[in-house]
């Protein structure tokens, strides 16, 4: 899925929290978004998903404005936070519900879920628990799996490595890469962990106070440049 962002602005009161002049993301690109807290990563995702109204500009998915159509919803999978989970369902029920919304049968959903079996580590399915009773890490897994289950053309994950154990972090990276290579899924991933981002992303943008200040393709030099940016900020 091709993403075009132009003149996109989000202003709260007097404060501009996002201001992106132009950003094109090609089909099959795995874009990593990094930046400190308050840089505008989640705001950007919410604007792409039409969850908040832009103060100016627009986001187009495959040439259609997200605010003007809903067709993109069947092609998109996303997980930003726990607000994306129906916490009084069991993971199975939630997965089947998500699958049913795009007309996927239970059998097909089960087949897809097998792909995530190692990631789930026998802690998600058949637990006889509602999502609200799971640990934060396992809730995160449920959200990520639900987003990927529908085999979207565009996958958006906000801080997917948070709350996950090291094994799960490695697995999710592997799964994202596989999915990207096998199906050409366009992915937008944000993280505070530079190593994760540089390891899987084909392109990285650095946000600062709502603006894109760097747009890089990962290489050792680029990684050093980003590390330098964060260490200077810490000093």
């Amino acid at each position: 899925m091709q993403i075009n962002i132009s003149q996109l602005q989000k202003i709260y009161g007097q404060q501009t929290v996002l201001d992106i002049d132009q950003l094109q993301i090609s089909k099959g690109e795995l874009l990593g978004i990094v930046g400190n807290n308050g840089a505008g990563k989640t705001t950007l995702f919410r604007l792409v998903l039409d969850l908040i109204q832009a103060s100016g500009g627009e986001v187009q998915l495959n040439g259609q404005s997200v605010a003007g159509s809903e067709h993109w919803k069947t092609l998109t999978g996303s997980y930003l936070d726990e607000g994306f989970l129906i916490d009084f369902m069991t993971p199975e029920e939630y997965f089947y519900f998500v699958a049913s919304l795009i007309g996927m049968s239970k059998e097909a959903a089960d087949e897809k879920l097998r792909f995530f079996s190692r990631f789930m580590n026998d802690e998600i399915l058949e637990q006889k628990k509602f999502i609200r009773q799971f640990s934060t890490g396992n809730k995160q897994k449920v959200g990520i799996i639900a987003a990927m289950l529908v085999q979207p053309e565009l996958l958006i994950l906000d801080e997917p490595f948070n709350f996950l154990d090291p094994t799960s972090q490695i697995l999710i990276k592997r799964m994202l890469k596989e999915e990207n290579e096998a199906r050409g899924t366009t992915m937008l991933i944000s993280s505070h962990n530079l190593n994760h981002i540089t390891e899987i992303c084909s392109r990285i943008i650095l946000l600062e106070k709502g603006k894109i200040i760097k747009d890089l393709t990962p290489s050792n030099d680029d990684l050093q440049e980003i590390e330098k940016y964060f260490s200077v900020n810490a000093d």
Binding site: L49, D50, L51, E70, K73, T74, T76, S78, L80, D81, G83, F84, L85, I86, D87, V98, L101, I102
Partner: peptide
């Protein structure tokens, strides 16, 4: 979970 409703089909 309205965010979910808003982004799903």
């Amino acid at each position: 979970f309205f965010d979910f409703i808003a982004v799903s089909s």
